[in-house]
């Protein structure tokens, strides 16, 4: 807290009922009071008094939304607080303090940082002043990051909530934001239900978007017509199995020739009956005609044995099929 404000804030007990919880101009944290915080206040009381500002009608929170919430839940009617007189400090200073209070304590999640950036921007005449203003609040925000934060704030609430709860990445959130509401909701539900990893989400999303363009239909319709739709409802399958089936079905629809070629390769490789420690590796994307064998061995005898096996393989019909590299007509 700036020294001047420190001196002007008077420590006094307040009644949480006098605090206007709907005034969120300085709110940075988007979460509510945790059970741990409530229990700590119940046992020890409020260790660090919240900072409040007097208003015409009551009190406004600058720092300590969760502490006040916890006190209300505990039905406390006297809470120690530091109270500033009305209009004593410029709003930007109080906002900086509120952001710093949150950022330096437990850090901000992506949406909180975005919200803090948005609020700071409202008080700045020139967006180039943002990095400096953010630094005063304990945040490192480059102009590029600021642009991304502001883009996050413009996404539908549901997507913002997913980012806030770390269910999805900023990149996926932006991708979801390019979809119409129904498609974004469908995918958001899918992500919320299955919780795929960030890279799996990106893969699913980009393939579905491509399919919707190729099929000239919405993403929701594409999902509806996937053979994996029934699998998603199968109660006997766990989450990971469902993700696996879904990704496979999407990829098959997106890359029909390639996946069929891969399947044929895998079938033929299976027919080779390779022993443990000997594997046949296809070229990436089947682009180069050169395949590789990887051979693990620990003794000369083992090497000899596997080398003999390899020699015999060169006449194997399945290997010939693999090396033919033809796709069937459809």
């Amino acid at each position: 807290m700036p020294d001047g404000l420190k001196a002007d804030a008077r420590e006094m007990p307040v009644d949480p009922a006098d605090v206007d919880l709907t005034d969120e101009r300085y709110r940075v944290s988007l979460s509510s009071a945790s059970p741990e915080l409530i229990e700590s206040i119940r046992r020890l009381g409020v260790v660090t008094p919240p900072l409040l500002e007097k208003t015409v009608s009551g009190l406004r929170i600058v720092c300590g939304f969760k502490r006040i919430q916890a006190c209300m839940q505990l039905d406390m009617n006297r809470v120690p607080a530091r109270v500033l007189a009305h209009s004593l400090a410029p709003e930007i200073d109080l906002l900086t303090m509120a952001i710093a209070d949150n950022a330096l304590k437990g850090g901000l999640n992506l949406m909180e940082a975005a919200a803090a950036t948005g609020k700071l921007m409202e008080h700045l005449a020139d967006e180039n002043d943002l990095p400096d203003a953010a630094a005063a609040a304990g945040l490192r925000i480059t102009p590029d990051l600021a642009r991304k934060y502001l883009r996050l704030l413009n996404l539908p609430e549901k997507i913002q909530r997913m980012v806030c709860h770390e269910m999805t990445s900023m990149k996926v959130a932006f991708e979801l934001g390019t979809l119409n509401k129904q498609d974004a909701d469908t995918l958001a539900d899918l992500i919320e239900t299955l919780r795929p990893t960030a890279s799996q989400q990106l893969e699913i999303l980009s393939n579905l978007k491509a399919l919707s363009i190729l099929q000239r239909s919405s993403v929701s319709e594409v999902i509806l017509h996937l053979p994996a739709t029934l699998i998603l409802k199968d109660e006997h399958l766990d989450r990971k199995a469902k993700i696996h089936h879904l990704r496979r079905a999407i990829r098959k629809a997106r890359y029909p020739h390639l996946t069929r070629f891969e399947t044929t390769f895998l079938e033929n490789r299976g027919k080779l009956g390779l022993p443990p420690g000997l594997s046949l590796i296809p070229p990436p994307g089947f682009e180069s005609p050169a395949y590789r064998f990887a051979l693990d061995f620990e003794t000369c005898a083992e090497l000899r044995e596997k080398a003999d096996y390899l020699r015999a393989l060169s006449d194997h019909q399945a290997l010939r099929e693999i090396l033919k590299r033809e796709i069937e007509d459809t």
């Binding site: 491509a210 399919l211 363009i213 029909p256 020739h257 390639l258 682009e287 796709i327």
Partner: peptide, 28 residues
């Protein structure tokens, strides 16, 4: 060209880093 299907073919990354149709498809 947001409605163009052209970049949504069955591409793989070629040996030169460029995206190309999956080779058996090109051959066909």
């Amino acid at each position: 060209h947001p409605r163009s299907k052209i970049v949504h073919g069955e591409f793989i990354r070629g040996a030169d880093g460029k995206m190309r149709y999956f080779k058996p498809l090109r051959i066909r």
